[in-house]
Simulated scan of single mutants.
Amino acid sequence: MSMQGRIGRAGGTRVKRALGVQAALEWAFRVEKAQLELPPPKDVVEEGFGFGLEYVLMQRAALGCKVDGGQHKMGSDTHADAEVIAATVAGMPDTIGGKRMAIRAVELARAGLTPDWMPGAVPRCVPVDIKRNRHGDRAVSVVVGTERALIKGKWRSVEVRACPVTFRPDARQIEAARQAYEDWWQALCWVREGLIAGGMLREIELTGSLPKLRPWGDR
């Protein structure tokens, strides 16, 4: 049974299902299969946090849904609250990533995933290239110069070789992964605030639950 089917009434009063914003997105896009319909260019729709209610209302009208959540899009089984969530995500402003972040948030929600912030990653010194054969792995070396050496009583030119190394993952990769996680976290906050301010959810109640802001800093 879907989460939609478990939302019911008690004594004639609608009982809302309490969900954190990440769980609400996963319910909307993974369970209810809501679709992300991105808004027109920002010169058509005013950008900023204030867009939210107006854009959601337009989306709901286009979907054939009443604002009170009483009807669904004709021919669709998607819950009305899931459509509201999808419309809110679609209007994410450029200040927190815009359309690209909206798409990323939906991809993660559909997969039930959190962005990979590279837990436990530390830069390690490793060879730039490895040659593999039946005897095992061997670091590839390169010629970095020549030297004169006395070999068996004769002076000869010999190659000086060294193994190039690098750090993997490097500090920039780790920093970029963790910045991407923080950007996603900020987007979740924006979606949560927008949904609460809009007041259009009828069977879902958003809680204050959020993923950890910087899980790599926890002890």
Rank of each mutant, 00 (worst) to 15 (best):
G69R: 04
G69Y: 04
G69M: 05
G70R: 10
Q71F: 13
K73T: 15
G75H: 10
S76Q: 12
D77N: 10
T78N: 04
A80K: 10
A82L: 07
E83K: 13
E83Y: 09
V84Q: 06
I85L: 12
A86D: 04
A87N: 05
A87L: 07
P93H: 07
P93C: 09
D94S: 12
T95V: 12
I96H: 03
G98F: 02
G98Y: 03
M101D: 01
A102P: 02
I103W: 04
A105G: 07
E107H: 13
L108K: 09
R110W: 02
L113R: 15
T114I: 15
T114L: 14
M118C: 06
M118Q: 09
A121E: 01
V122M: 12
P127Y: 02
V128P: 00
V128M: 12
V128N: 06
V128L: 12
V128D: 04
D129G: 08
D129A: 15
I130A: 05
I130K: 05
K131Q: 10
K131G: 08
G136C: 10
R138M: 14
R138W: 11
A139T: 14
S141R: 11
S141F: 08
V142W: 12
V143N: 04
V143Q: 10
V144Y: 09
V144R: 14
T146H: 13
T146Y: 09
E147N: 13
R148V: 15
I151F: 12
I151L: 13
G153P: 08
K154F: 11
R156G: 08
R156L: 15
V158D: 04
E159G: 06
A162L: 07
V165W: 02
T166F: 01
F167V: 08
F167R: 10
P169M: 02
D170L: 00
Q173D: 03
Q173G: 02
I174R: 00
I174G: 01
E175C: 08
E175R: 13
R178E: 00
R178P: 00
Y181L: 01
Y181P: 00
E182C: 00
D183G: 02
W184G: 00
W185Y: 06
A187W: 00
C189T: 04
V191P: 00
G194I: 00
G194C: 10
A197Q: 10
M200K: 11
L201T: 08
L201E: 03
R202Y: 12
E203F: 07
E203D: 13
I204C: 11
I204H: 05
